[in-house]
Design a protein around this nucleic acid. Structure first.
Length: 824
DNA sequence: AGCACGCCGACT
DNA sequence: GTCGGCGTGCTC
């Protein structure tokens, strides 16, 4: 049998194009090229992109002329075969292009792109013949040799320079060409060594002679010899930075000695990944309940692929995970530990690094691109230095795992596992389960408050269940007290937004030197400002929302598009000065509390106070060290934080958690309140929880009070079944945007008419969402409730066709449409 | 996503 | 009369 080589490659381009593109493989690379490698290809007239080889084949395209691959960038695939299959699954399930998945998956630095550069063809002599702008640009090109067009554009900010460049090219004064730039720069560290053998007396004498007349050089030389002697290392070297800080000697002195051949400077590539302390500690020993849970987990995985670990707050789930990770990596397999965005706290990072040291790699949104690339290279290299455990957020599911044994998804119920914008709009929890199956790995979901969807899968026997019902160390569950705000207002037992009962509790805790956490799910000072004379509320000019008042900057800003204006003392409509701030956020709480408890140390933790790189960890550290008495915070404080001196936790307004126009409102309210309450009493001293509400009889509030997950779950499942919501149907939300309001309405009506009713149990809309205009675009949404029994493949095809019809319709093609599968 | 092509308003 | 704005279509 003759073996024919595969001559064509279908590649994924990092664009929102629906199809793969076919390129011819250069003869030279026929043996080398494999799916999962990066290649450079030209698309269109000049632009060069990095593409990923998806598959190889031997059928020459007939409709068009193929271009050849310009360059193969890798020797071995950087996307393992299984991960490439996983990309396909994401693209299909979440209805987006593979290019969009590629954009989400690859760090920017691994995607090389070409940029147009221009060069001078002629010399200075032609300047006089050029027009004003032309000669300016030409002189700039002459002075540097080669310039990026984008750089010239920056210099002429705002002005369109394309015609000027065009004319220069036409006059044959300059040339243009495409250039690829390597974005990843390895970190270089300078080391200083002796420029000869330490034991070579002749060298040392000569060196000493060389710096005899310069006292500073002499001191440096002697200090260096001293350091080397102490190190007892004949190949001793020291970081240039350290040498400077240790000796206080200027860099210029070092430079002189290098010039005199006494010292030598070596530049070495170093890792950006911070080395952790190698003094590892043993994992904490598990208590009986935890040991039993671990056994049950192992046992359940012999029958099922997914297990839910339902453990009450402070039951010590993390310790169980750590032991489980130990068991998996002992088999030589990798573990992915997923956490929600906000919860990637230093607390958990440190706990894992203490036990596993350099085996742990961290992947989160604040990482720089170069650090991401190093993590990729580390996993791609597959050697002893490779990480075996990755602790990461949502996007970590795209890392190049080659030997995955298990995925742990902590705080499984968290909504931040779902990406909303841009596409792919994937849920990392659900996707991870699929990925685990592709790798033949197991998934462990953990939480104190399982999502309704997950628990339903347990009831359907799809997932196994393991429970931890007792708090670690047998600490008592906190007592939860409901404070009736309506009653408090009536009896005039209110001060600002605090009931007298709550203030008394805070006072008592402060006296006992115990800390207090207050939860308010809204940042800023107040959600909006209202003129009490004419009722005007300032709105965003681009979006259909009221502007949020920020006191520290005295501004009103739009949380949708960022539109910000200065806050004026008088009403913009009637000029009256009777403006009032409505509602309250964490900033206002902080201000009021400082007046009520002037002697207490009060801090606030929300998006605004944790923006800086260390803002978050320093706040936690200060709280841990008891430098803060009262901590006010948003969602952020509800996740996985473990403090042992918290005596009181309070939810300041439970109602705005529950009364949201969302079928998940009660479930989420329950999750949030239970998680917040869980911050109390994590030591021998019990902790109290107080919830302020206008609806003390609300069933969800009482389920929280009684720590009664099961009743909440059953009640919610009944509601979902009755009103046809997940997990009984699959939701697909289609959003259509258009600049023109009436066209937006017509286009969405047309789209609705193209959707086949038979495939759906219910179709809602098109309707304007609560915010019907964002950045001057009118938005309409259609909500589809999909019968899970109908083949999903069929639904996708039908929807794709309907959307294509709108996009090619003469009147509606400027509408932009996106789909969100399993939306939140 | 770019980039080229093509059709209507504000300038000389 | 043109220059140049952006809406639209295509890229292997």
């Amino acid at each position: 049998m003759t073996h024919t080589k595969l001559e064509y490659a279908d590649v994924i381009l990092p664009l929102a194009v629906p199809l793969l593109y076919t390129y011819k493989i250069p003869l030279f690379d026929l043996d080398l090229i494999k799916p999962g490698m990066r290649v450079l290809v030209q698309l269109g007239k000049k632009k060069v992109y990095t593409a990923i080889v998806h598959s190889l084949h031997n059928s020459p395209p007939k409709q068009y002329e193929v271009k050849e691959i310009q360059k193969v960038l890798d020797n071995t695939p950087i996307i393992p075969e299984i991960q490439l299959k996983f990309w396909d699954w994401i693209a299909e399930y979440y209805m987006c292009s593979r290019g969009e998945v590629m954009k989400a998956a690859l760090p920017a630095g691994l995607k090389l792109e070409s940029e147009t550069h221009v060069y001078a063809k002629l010399g200075e002599e032609v300047i006089d013949e050029l027009e004003n702008d032309e000669s300016l640009i030409f002189q700039r090109i002459l002075s540097t040799g080669s310039v990026k067009i984008s750089e010239i554009a920056k210099l002429f900010s705002g002005k369109n320079i394309t015609p000027i460049i065009q004319s220069l090219i036409e006059k044959q004064v300059i040339l243009a060409g495409e250039e690829i730039k390597e974005k990843f720069k390895p970190k270089i560290e300078s080391y200083i060594t002796l420029n000869g053998e330490f034991s070579n007396k002749l060298f040392i004498e000569k060196a000493f002679e060389a710096c005899k007349s310069a006292p500073k050089q002499q001191t440096l030389f002697l200090t260096f010899l001293d350091l080397q002697t102490k190190s007892k290392n004949p190949n001793f070297r020291i970081k240039k930075k350290d040498l400077i800080t240790k000796t206080g000697i200027a860099a210029s002195v070092i430079k002189e000695l290098i010039k005199k051949d006494v010292l030598n400077e070596i530049n070495d590539e170093v890792s950006r990944i911070i080395e952790v302390n190698k003094n590892l500690v043993d994992a904490k020993t598990l208590n009986t309940a935890q040991i039993k849970a671990l056994q049950q987990i192992h046992e359940s995985f012999t029958k099922k692929d997914v297990t839910l670990l339902h453990g009450v707050t402070a039951s010590g789930k993390t310790e169980v995970y750590i032991q489980y990770i130990k068991d998996i990596i002992a088999q030589g397999k990798q573990v992915l530990y997923l956490l929600p965005e906000i919860a990637l706290t230093t607390q958990i990072t440190q706990r894992l690094q203490k036990v596993f040291g350099n085996k742990v790699g961290i992947y989160h949104s604040r990482l720089h691109d170069n650090e991401r690339i190093e993590l990729w290279k580390n996993l791609n290299s597959c050697n002893e230095e490779s990480f075996q455990i990755i602790l990461g957020v949502r996007s970590a599911i795209f890392l190049p795992f080659s030997n995955l044994g298990a995925i742990i998804i902590d705080e499984e119920h968290e909504t931040s596992f779902k990406q909303y914008d841009p596409a792919p709009r994937y849920n990392a929890r659900d996707s991870a389960i699929v990925m685990a199956k592709l790798h033949n790995a197991k998934t462990l979901l953990g939480t104190a408050t399982p999502s309704i969807e997950t628990y339903y899968n347990v009831l359907q026997k799809k997932y196994a269940l393991v429970e931890l019902t007792e708090r670690h160390g047998n600490f008592a569950m906190p007592t939860i007290e409901i404070l009736d705000l309506a009653k408090a207002y009536k009896q005039k037992r209110m001060q600002k937004n605090f009931s007298k009962d709550l203030l008394e509790k805070i006072q008592k805790n402060l006296e006992e030197k115990r800390q207090v956490i207050l939860f308010q799910n809204r940042r800023g000072y107040s959600p909006y400002i209202e003129c009490t004379s004419c009722g005007t509320i300032p709105h965003c000019i681009h979006c259909d929302v009221s502007l949020t008042y920020h006191k520290y900057s005295n501004t009103l800003s739009c949380h949708y598009c960022g539109y910000t204006i200065k806050n004026k003392p008088t009403c913009i409509a009637c000029g009256d000065s009777s403006l009032e701030t409505m509602g309250f956020g964490t900033e206002k709480i902080e201000e009021d509390l400082k007046v009520i408890f002037p002697k207490s140390r009060i801090a606030r933790m929300d998006l605004d106070t944790t923006r800086g790189k260390n803002g978050y960890s320093s706040l936690i550290e200060r709280f841990e060290n008891r430098e803060i008495d009262i901590l006010i915070g948003t969602q952020m404080i509800s996740k996985g934080l473990d403090f042992d001196n918290v005596g009181l936790v309070s939810v300041l307004n439970a109602d705005n958690l529950l009364h949201m126009p969302d079928f998940r409102a009660f479930e989420r309210g329950f999750h949030l309140m239970v998680q917040v309450a869980g911050r109390a009493g994590r030591s021998e001293q019990a902790g109290d929880v107080a919830i302020q509400t206008f609806s003390p009889l609300h069933s969800t509030i009482n389920q929280v009070k009684n720590h009664d997950y099961n009743t909440m779950m059953k009640e919610q499942l009944e509601e979902r079944q009755k009103f046809i919501y997940p997990p009984f149907v699959r939701l697909i939300k289609i959003s259509l945007k258009h600049r023109d309001k009436s066209k937006a309405i017509k286009a969405s009506d047309y789209l609705r008419s193209q959707i086949n009713n038979k495939n759906y149990i219910q179709i809602l809309g098109p309707e304007f969402p609560p915010v019907g205009k964002i950045q001057n675009m009118f938005v309409l949404q259609i909500l589809l409730k999909v019968n899970k029994k109908v083949a999903y493949q069929k639904i996708r095809e039908e929807l794709f066709n309907a959307i294509t019809l709108v996009k090619t319709h003469a009147d509606y093609k400027s509408a932009s449409i996106h789909t969100d599968v399993d939306p939140y």
